[in-house]
Structure formats: C-alpha cells, structure tokens
Computed example of a mutant assay.
Amino acid sequence: MEQVRLGIIGARGRGIIAKYWHNPEGRSVVVGAVDVDPKKLEEFKEDVNSDAFVTTDYRELIAREDIDAIAVMSPDYCHEEHAIAALKAGKHVFCEKPLAITVDGCDNILRAWKQSGKHLMVGFNMRYMNMYRTMKEIVDSGVIGEIKAVWVRHFVGLGGYYYYHDWHANSKNTTGLLLQKGSHDLDVIHWITGRYATKVSAFGSLDFYGGDKPNDLTCPTCSERETCTEASPGRLIQCAFREEVNVEDNNMVIMELEGGIKASYLQCHFTPDYQRNYVFIGTEGRMENSEPENKVYVKTRRSNNDRELSDRVYHIKEAEGSHGGADPNICKDFIDMILDGKQPVATPIAGRMSVAVGCAATESIRAGGKVVQISPAPEFMQQ
C-alpha cells in the first residue's frame, strides 16, 4: 500500500481535521464520509472532497472495499459501536478521544483491535502540542528530578458554549465532563509522569448550569435571550439551563499514581478565561507552564549538581495548523503508523486508562467523595 484511503464518521465537529488527510498526490486521500445531517455532508464535500462518497448510514461507509481506514469523529457515546464495527470490517481506526464513555466500552474496543490485526490510534492531540511536548522533554531530561507531585488547573472558559448547549450536558452521552473534557488532561498527567493513576477521590457538583427550563427550549426562541449570560441567539442550540442537564461543571480530583506520585486535577466550566495550568514538582525542581504567555518555567532547588545553578524559561515556538499545530501532526502519525509501522505517541491502552480515571472520579463524586480504585488494564492486553 502506498496511499491510505480514509472514510470519516462524523463529517463536522472534529471531523474537520479530514482536510489534513486529504492529499490526493500524497500518502492519504479521504474518499468517503458519513453524518446523520445531510447538510454537514454537503459542507464536507465543499471543504474536503467534492467527489467523496457520502451517506447517512455508517454501515454503508465501512462496507466499502475502497476504504482502508476509518476516522471515528462521532459523538462520544457512538465511539464504541463505530470503532468496533470498523475494526471488524478490517479497517484501521483513528478514534477521537475519549476512546469510549465506559471502561467496558474501552475494553470491548481493545479486544476487537487485538483480534483484528489492524492499527488503532486514539486522538490525544495534546501530546502533539509544542507546549506539552516541551514539558515531556524537560521531565525526561531529569532537570527537576523524580516527579512527586502534579497539580493541574483547567479553566474551561466558554464551557457553556461548548458543553452545556448540546448532547454533552447529559450523563447518558458522556458519563461526565471529567471523562469527556478531562480525558486529555488525565492522559497528559499519565504521559509526562510515565505512571498511571491507581486510585482517586473526587468532589464535584452542578453549580452554574442546569435548571428548570424546558429541554426543547433553544436560544433563538427564548424570551430571555437578551439578558441571559449564556445566550447564543444565532445558533439553534438547547438552553444551558434546561432540566436534563446533569453533568458537573465544577470538579476537583485527587489521585495517587503508580510509584506514590500525588496528583490533583481541577476543572471549572464557568470561568472567564480558557487555559490549562500544569505544575510538576520533582526532587530537584518545579516546572510550570503558562499558556497565555506560551512559556514553560523551570525552577531548581539545591541538588548538589550543576542543575541547581540556574532557573530556566522555555519560549514555546508557534506551529501551523489547528490546535497549535497538533492536528496536522497527529493525522500524519496515523498515516505513518499504517504505511511505515511507526509506533503511536499515545497507545490504545493510554486511551483506556484516561477513561478509567475519568469514570472512577465521576463515580467518587456521585458517591460523596469515596476513594475508588482504578480498573487495571484487562488481562488480554498484558499477554
């Protein structure tokens, strides 16, 4: 095979990264897409490939013999069904994060992957961002010594706009936003430390969104649209204060990782700003990022070696492409994995373990903060 032919499940949303795969003169080409909304399929054809096969039935897409790989960009609650069906059809699979919305769902995907002999990649594009690749390199260099503590603050500005006006706001579709939104951050904690979480305790609640508005109320039809802080009158979206909203918007998680590393993750969806702040504390120093400044700071402590002689500031370079250049790079890696056998930056088991932590933390919240053990990797993955 010299060129990978791809089909996209979910033509819009994260499906917009299909443009990075469509290179008819190169190593990959997008030949088909599926979406339940015909309008989105028309937009897909205009933006990506006017000759692409399009359908509203994903089974028609994965049955095509002219497709080698499937990118699963559908809503989270569909990932398990779509990824398994594609793997069983003999397709390589790129699955947007989270891998699934339950641990069992992840394990079902992993089982299908192991049986298929095909490639599976999870869409952890934060591993491809210059900021976090730099932080990984700093930790691996040993400059702050052995990691002992991790503190993460996630300010989800516009959280209502992204998560409380649509399907994300109901737990049946996401389990919770510690899983849906937090899966990136939980994975970065695992990745940079090189350790998986083993147990968690968490507290959270619905402190701002949700309420008593009708579930079918939309912003353009609402009489309060001129005064509502969350109104988006130009979009036909559900009210963020409707009755069915039941996923926490204010969360605090404490976890213990392998090797005794202590970590915390704080997530709030009604902050005015949007940024992630990571702090890693080791035996020889501390590392902290600043997304607004696009910098990483390293402060060293006495260690009786040359590392203690200076503090350091890393100026992160800009990169082209969406998500700080991460999307074109992760798309390239998926093709390189299929054609060249390149190992992915994020393994499928990493996708499963971030979901396991998100599920355990959500369980802890809804049980009053009890300590919950993280479900270990299934035995068939350890063989």
Results as ranks from 00 to 15, higher is better:
Met337Val: 03
Tyr278Cys: 08
Val150Ser: 01
Met73Ile: 06
Gly7Met: 00
Gly194Trp: 01
Pro24Phe: 04
Leu266Tyr: 15
Glu248Cys: 13
Tyr161His: 12
Asn294Glu: 08
His315Met: 06
Asn23Val: 14
Thr175Val: 13
His22Phe: 07
Asp166Ser: 15
Ile8Lys: 02
Ile62Thr: 07
Tyr20Lys: 02
Val313His: 01
Ser364Asp: 01
Asn305Gly: 11
Phe44Ser: 06
Ser201Met: 05
Asn251Val: 14
Asp336Phe: 08
Gly90Lys: 08
Lys88Trp: 07
Ile261Met: 00
Arg195Lys: 14
Cys219Phe: 02
Gly32Pro: 11
Pro378Asn: 05
Gln238Leu: 12
Asn125Gly: 03
Tyr163Leu: 14
Ser50Tyr: 09
Gly7Lys: 04
His165Cys: 10
Gly90Met: 06
Val357Tyr: 08
Asp104Asn: 11
Arg276His: 15
Trp21Arg: 13
Gln343Thr: 15
Phe203Tyr: 13
Ser290Asp: 12
Met135Thr: 12
Asp212Ala: 00
Cys219Trp: 04
Ser264Phe: 09
Gly123Phe: 04
Ala86Met: 09
Arg235Pro: 14
Phe203Leu: 05
Ala231Tyr: 10
Cys78Val: 13
Gly123Ile: 06
Ala85His: 04
Ala100Arg: 14
Asp185Trp: 05
Lys181Leu: 04
His79Arg: 00
Ala33Thr: 03
Pro344Cys: 01
Tyr128His: 05
Ala319His: 14
Thr218Lys: 08
Asp37Gly: 01
Gly369Thr: 12
Leu87Glu: 01
Ile254Phe: 13
Ala377Glu: 13
Thr347His: 09
Ala69Lys: 13
Val4Tyr: 02
Val371Lys: 12
Gly90Cys: 04
Phe270Thr: 08
Gly341Thr: 02
Gly123Tyr: 05
Asp107Glu: 11
His190Met: 13
Ile261Arg: 02
Ser290Gln: 10
Ala377Lys: 15
Lys342Gln: 14
Arg352Phe: 13
Cys106Ser: 05
Asn289Ala: 02
Leu158Tyr: 10
Gly210Leu: 00
Asn130Ile: 04
Glu293Thr: 06
Gly7Leu: 03
Val48Lys: 13
Cys95Pro: 11
His184Asn: 03
Glu226Leu: 09
Lys39Trp: 06
Phe44Gln: 10
Ala197Ser: 09
Lys342Asn: 11
Asn329His: 11
Glu243Ala: 08
Leu309Glu: 12
Ala11Val: 00
Lys213Trp: 10
Arg312Ile: 02
Asp104Phe: 06
Asn250Lys: 10
Asp207Cys: 11
Val34Asn: 14
Gln3Met: 08
Ala263Ser: 05
Leu179Pro: 01
Ala361Trp: 06
Arg111Asp: 11
Ala350Phe: 04
Leu6Ala: 14
Asp187Asn: 15
Val34Met: 15
Arg153Ala: 10
Arg153Cys: 07
Met73Val: 07
Lys172Ser: 09
His165Gln: 09
Cys331Lys: 14
Lys19Phe: 09
